[in-house]
Design a protein around this nucleic acid. Structure first.
Lengths: 208, 208
DNA sequence: GACGACATACCAACTGGTTGGTACGCTCTA
DNA sequence: TAGAGCGTACCAACCAGTTGGTATGTCGTC
């Protein structure tokens, strides 16, 4: 019999990742999470005092996992900071495969329903999206120095814009029932950043 | 005593616009909508067979209202199609005032929770976002002709990208609790489209 | 190394309030 | 006078959270 300590907790977090991205936060019930995780309600409320606290824990875990995923990606080892930025976009574009629920962002999904009513959850979402942006921001700042770009926009605003494009791409993909439109948006962002740094575009195999 | 026919119906739709954009669709209860509209549950289910059908009706109304709003805007009378596109963005940027719930998009909010589970609602969202994009698409196509832009991207993909940026800007604004980041994203999109059509940027009073 | 005291991890059954939806009655207007 | 428009009263299902319990590990003590 498996009885790893905390087994139920991480199974519940995994269940939250998949169910919330499919149906949103409010429509996801505690019973449903327990069923998917294969645990009982007692286990749920042993690990989390409330449903909201599960959301916060799931978002924090999501942030850690995402950061680890991108930190481990190969583009991170490129020498030129601009290559790292564009490599990040290529990497994110490659992730847009399969069902929307499998590649969309947990934080972006949850924040829409909770930003007004659940401050702690909203902050966890802001932290998740913000930490993604921060790692981009430093590379953007480095690239601005190297390529002597001095414009009215800041590294921070471009980093947040990048996150906005990704989040928006997920929404349009959901509305259109088609992941291809999300890829096209990432292509546009790729082109924009290339233009900002006056780098000639390299040939892509298929663009939109 | 006011007794306009259909008064309850339109009051319920108005209530849906404001409450759903604050709390999302699933968290919005029928009782709450009735309270905000100042009608009873009997009136609700007289006009809408189900809660879901209210969502579809609200989205259709939203689409009509949005299209009318933008069709009536002054930028629409500009001769140059590129000016109309950039005028659209300026117009949308000017709308980013006050609370996020007041300027964010109903369709983008609802589709996140319903795209997997409520096909009819998702289609209404897709129609809403799509019809916005279509009116942009024709101007983009005209601008591409006039400015002799022949690239790998299509007018349609740029139109959808524009919608994605707006939707994403709303999400980041919600997560950061700050509408300024949404403005900055619209500025970036403005700059991108200017670059695509090789038009020198005009001085903006304040950019990010 | 046996034993008691306690903490952790989990389960099954229950509860009180909430929610979408119904049944039915009243009251204007065409 | 028929029916559209709306109000009142109600219900069954559902949902977050509680209660009371069991199994297992852990740690100090003699």
């Amino acid at each position: 019999m498996e009885r790893l300590p905390g087994g139920a907790r991480s199974k519940l977090l995994d269940a939250a990742f998949s169910i919330i991205r499919q149906k949103g936060y409010a429509a996801t019930t505690v019973d449903e999470l327990c069923a998917k995780a294969g645990v009982t309600k007692g286990a749920f409320f042993h690990h989390f005092p409330t449903k909201d606290s599960l959301a916060v824990a799931a978002l924090n875990q999501w942030t850690v996992m995402s950061n680890a995923l991108f930190a481990a990606a190969s583009y991170h080892r490129l020498e030129d900071p601009l290559d790292r930025i564009l490599g990040y976009l290529d990497f994110r574009k490659r992730m847009l495969r399969g069902a929307v629920a499998e590649f969309s962002c947990l934080a972006g999904t949850i924040v829409q329903e909770t930003y007004e009513t659940h401050p702690d959850i909203r902050d966890a979402c802001g932290e998740s999206i913000g930490s993604q942006a921060e790692s981009l921001e430093s590379d953007i700042a480095l690239a601005m120095k190297r390529y002597r770009v001095r414009e009215r926009w800041t590294a921070k605003s471009l980093a947040l814009h990048t996150q906005a494009v990704l989040q928006g791409a997920f929404i349009v993909a959901k509305a259109k029932g088609d992941a291809a439109v999300a890829e096209a948006s990432v292509d546009h962002l790729h082109r924009y950043i290339s233009l900002l740094f006056s780098r000639p575009r390299k040939k892509a195999r298929r663009e939109h």
